[in-house]
Design a binder for these strands. Structure first.
Ligand SMILES: [Zn+2]
Ligand SMILES: [Zn+2]
Ligand SMILES: [Zn+2]
Ligand SMILES: [Zn+2]
Lengths: 159, 159
DNA sequence: TTGAGTATGTGATAGTATAACGTACCGCAT
DNA sequence: ATGCGGTACGTTATACTATCACATACTCAA
């Protein structure tokens, strides 16, 4: 798995590549990657952490890109709908996807100390949840999987 | 795993036993199982589905047990804190625990058609999430696991 | 009885999300 | 060029979720 969230890396490239990838994918699919949507994605990519809709809205407002909640929520809905961002239910907030465009079932590791969020890949057929669902005849279509704890950096710092 | 949520069962007993179990546990531990707390637990036990805090508050208000949000939230906090109820983050709502008192890591299966919620047991060490966390050195302390899909009853009804 | 700790009552407010309606723009068929 | 449908944005208002702050009341034990 990619450790992008916790490991040291070239974060400038991280942002540029993220935006470029989404830009390309929107072009392919004929989706409009508008200034508001682009800017919201950039804001989400700024840190590997989740941002609330109103944090984003504040930034948009400062930059003259829209000042009312629906502006932020619509851009976020667009990004989430097409798999360019995810909502972290536990935090009522949003984060840029680490593998934009690819069809995937994301899971998240949320550090309670530094708020960094890492995205992991999920396989819903495996593990006890998949077994329970299979036993019961429950058909899983989507899953929210959000683990909270201490990231390696914060754990080392504590020790 | 218990299929309590989806399978036919004696639901009257389900409620009585749930309340009795919590009552006993509170006695043991010296926690106050007050009328509001008892009533909120009963309301949660009424259906194997999640209820919003304001749904609960409406019922409490009708019954003269409190009419302001903090009354409901405080009772819910008590129940959640002691493991007698769980919050379903995806739905911003609450559900009675299926194994009250026992220390456990719950996972949920939420039917998108009938809104029934079943509680499953989780083992955080297993599966790809546990593997990812282990690889990264991330220490999982708690996890929100909420699968959405179709329960066996609704799937059969659809077919 | 008195006091510390806990639980409730109540009004106000913070934080999250959507409804509803109008306007602007774009690509396209007439 | 004109009109049209589709999509995105602007704006107001409102709904839904959750907490703060402070007063009051209860419980239990010293
Ligand atoms: Zn993703
Ligand atoms: Zn950390
Ligand atoms: Zn039952
Ligand atoms: Zn169902």
């Amino acid at each position: 798995m990619e450790a992008t969230g916790f490991a040291r890396h070239d974060h400038g490239a991280c942002i540029r590549e993220g935006v470029a990838l989404v830009d390309a994918r929107c072009r392919e699919e004929g989706w409009q990657f508008t200034p508001v949507r682009r800017r919201v994605l950039e804001l989400l990519l700024e840190g590997h952490r989740a941002m609330g809709a109103y944090d984003i809205l504040d930034r948009l407002r400062e930059e003259g890109l829209g000042s009312q909640p629906p502006v932020a929520y619509r851009a976020l809905d667009f990004l989430v709908k097409h798999g360019f961002a995810h909502k972290i239910e536990r935090l009522n907030s949003f984060i840029a996807c680490a593998h934009p465009g690819e069809h995937h079932a994301p899971a998240f590791l949320i550090c309670r100390s530094c708020d960094t969020v890492a995205e992991a890949e999920l396989d819903m057929r495996e593990g006890r949840l998949g077994a329970s669902a299979a036993d019961l005849g429950f058909v899983i279509e989507r899953a929210v999987v959000e683990a909270e704890g201490l990231c390696p950096n914060c754990r080392d710092a504590a020790a």
